[in-house]
Structure formats: C-alpha cells, structure tokens
Amino acid sequence: MGVMRIGHVNLRVLDMDAALGHYIGVLGMSKTGEDEAGNIYLKAWDEWDRYSLILSPSDRAGMNHIAYKVEHDSDLDALRQRVEDYGIAVEEVPAGTLQYCGRAMKFNLPSGHEFYLYAQKEFAGKAVGVTNPDPWPQNRTGAAVHWLDHALLICELNPEKGINKVAENMDFMKKALDFYLAEQVMVGPDGDIPAAAWMFRSSTPHDIAFVGGEKMGFHHCAFFLDSWDDVLKAADIMAMNKVRIDVTPQRHGITRGYTIYFFDPSGNRNETFAGLGYLAQPDMPVITWTEQELGRGIFYHTGELVPSFTDVYT
C-alpha cells in the first residue's frame, strides 16, 4: 500500500528545557526516550508508535528531517526503486539509525528537505489502551494534542529565475510516492504557476504541504485536536503560558481546518489543527485557489494574508 502517514519530525531547539516545557507542559506530549546525543523523543497520547517528535539540541532552529511510515517492509524496496528511477539518490540506513526504528530509506526531496521512509517503529501504545478504552485520558497536561497530523515545508520559489521547488516536489510526491493532490494555489499573471500544494496519502486533506518562499525551510508541524472547543481551550492554555501566538483561532479556507499558529520557545512554528476537513480520496477533484483569493484560502475569516505566514519560518 506504500506510504501510510507522517511518522515524525526532527526539530532543532536552542534550549532543551524550554522546549520540553512547551511540548510536554503546554501541548501535553510525553517523553518516551532519549539518546547519547541528547535528542529527546516524544509522543502524543493517541499515537501508538514510540514517538512522533525528536528534539535535537542545536545552535539554530529548524527541521533536521521528516519521516513517513510505509505499511510493509517490502514497500521500502519498491519505493526506493521508484525514487531512484525518478532520478533521486537513495541511501538505505540500517535499523537503529533512526532510533527505535527498523531500516529506513533516506533521500532529499527536490526542495532539499531530508526525508526518510521507514516501515517499523517500536510500539508504545495509546494512553487509553485498546481494551474497553476511555475516549480520552484524564492525566494529561496542557492542550493534550492527539497526534502529529502534518507538516508544511517552505520550498524555494523564484519564477523570474525559473526556480519552483513547490512544483518539483508536487511532481515527485505524485509520481514516486503516490501522494494525491487535494488543493493547490496557482499564481502569476496567467495563474499557471503552482505556489503551494496540500497532498495526502491518508483520507484527510493533507499529510504534507509545500508553500513557496525565499529559501528552503520549516514552516510548521501540526498536532491534531478534536473540535473547535479544544482549539479555544488550547489557545487559553497558550496564553496562560505566554506562548507566542502567530494567528489566533480561526478557520483555514484551504483544508477547512480549525487552526492556531504559534511558536515553540526556539521559534519553530507549531499548529493545532482540528476538524478532519473532508474525506480526501484519490478520485476527488483537485481544489484550486487563485492569487486573488489566496488570503481567504489561508485565513478564511479575515481574508488577509499576514506577512509572517510566508516570511517567518525556521
């Protein structure tokens, strides 16, 4: 079946104690491991694999890599062939290279972002168990996010120099990894330049997104919440903890999600994302947003594009 879902992101942080205060205290994740390099592994309560977030101590913020989980071990070999046939070099790394994971395939997206595919990660189990479970666990702190939902990567876009890494990633994800396109933004005088894409393998509107910017970077990773009420409560918890909020609760036109954008203490953007948007299916017609309505696509209520959306990232 190929790629199932986002597996984890590895973020760089400037201050590990502050980062743990944020991801554990404010978002409600749990620490589930650490290694000799000082990396800390975390999971959310509704996830069953051992981690979905790796925090790495560093002198700069941003993302080291992003990883997606495939269904079968044999998918790794099949997808390796597809990626190599596409023209991108793949390195197979042995089990344990990604901590607590089996062997993995490592390569770079056309945009340059480091990307892994893996089939096996150590099992940890949901916090509510699987036998007659409660709908949610009582012992969580903060916003109690359910799971890592998706990530948005900034890709170099400079049409005047003929550079469009958004378009290159879209083509690669479709042809080599069988991702489907849910929504896209088309810009330029003739409306024919792809400037952003939301793509999926699961049944939600996006498992990964690409947006054009000045240079490659990490825009955000999003954590799932059930409802609009949970989004409001999460925003209250952020305010209580003086978390820097970029965009207060509102709705995205694109994906229909209920959102808050905010930053971790090192300046990496997070999102809490609620609502499943709609059922995304391989035969669903692609939704297109024009440059004129781009503001409403991103922030549906105000309809105004805020400069920080594309200029502030790590």
Partner: peptide
C-alpha cells in the same frame, strides 16, 4: 520592528 517567532529562531 518586524515581529516573528519570538524565540530567536526566525531572524525577522
């Protein structure tokens, strides 16, 4: 002053 991430990460 342009306002960004408030964490020393984005540089704006």
């Amino acid at each position: 002053i342009p306002s960004g991430c408030h964490g020393g990460g984005c540089g704006v």
